[in-house]
Amino acid sequence: MIETLGYIFAYFVFPGILFASAVGLLFMGIDRKITGHMQHRIGPPIWQEFLDVGKLFCKEDVTPAAANSFVFNFVPLLSFGALIAVVLFLPINSAQPVLTSVADLIVIIYLLNIPAVCMMLAGYASGCPFGTTGSSRYVVQLFGYELAFIIAALAVVAKAGWSLSLSSIVTYQAQNGWMAFQVALIPAAIAILIAAQGKLLRVPFDIPEAESEIVHGPLTEYSGPKLAILRIAYDIELFVATAVIVVLFFGGPVPHTIGGVYIPGVVGFLIKCFGIVVLSTLIRNIAARLRIDQALKFFWTFPTLLAAISLFLVMVV
């Protein structure tokens, strides 16, 4: 009974829907504020994302007749659910996540791809040329960044003694220092940061939803509550993608005691995630959007090569 209640709490409150959404929306708000300042604007207040999503929930749900299908309507919830599941697999407060399986990392990599696949399906199902073009671009981009992402993650797995369990990776880092500071893994850390930029569809890799070319890509036909859920899902993805990087490379959650006050691991964890979000915001404000062929070429050369070098160094040296 207590265990069941614990799972329900974990799913709905911490670190599930409530916590993850709040953190994701807040990160996005800060991202928009920093962007504003970098662009010599005042920018919106940091809670703007909450207001935007709230407004979308209150709006009428308009679905074009051509798009009205099970896939189109179901995709927002599927994508949202997959991301919440990832959150439950991540060691956010302590080395021990809420859910564990034999091979956490593989499950997470699968689950992290579900939102991307959802977006593609949504684009193809939306019956709109912008959505179709966005989806086909997304497919190409997925093959680009995913290769670098997986090889970089694999390098960490190899370093931690071929353990696919996130808690053992966190424990390994608690004893041996952050993975990002191991000489052999520095290239992989750079590679995964670039791959995350592609995963999160941020400039220079916002190609699938390039607004000046194809309006909003797969999301073009969405409006109202469905768009709100997709927005929350995207913001949670921002948090989750950075969280996976923090767990793999930056030590994960580490509790501290400063001046006799116990600070739980989640605080340090969020600060590290925030650092990566800020880095990603900086990159997205100092570059132009690449073309899809250029992006694919870039992903398969520079980050993939860096990740492969790391894997090679870890396995051989």
């Binding site: 662009q39 010599h40 604007r41 400039v203 220079p204 916002d206 390039a210 000046s212 132009a288 959007r289």
Partner: peptide
């Protein structure tokens, strides 16, 4: 032009 290639920061600074 900067906006069309997704470089919003340059767009804002040029207009400033």
């Amino acid at each position: 032009a900067a906006h069309e290639i997704g470089f919003t920061t340059l767009f804002m600074l040029l207009w400033r």
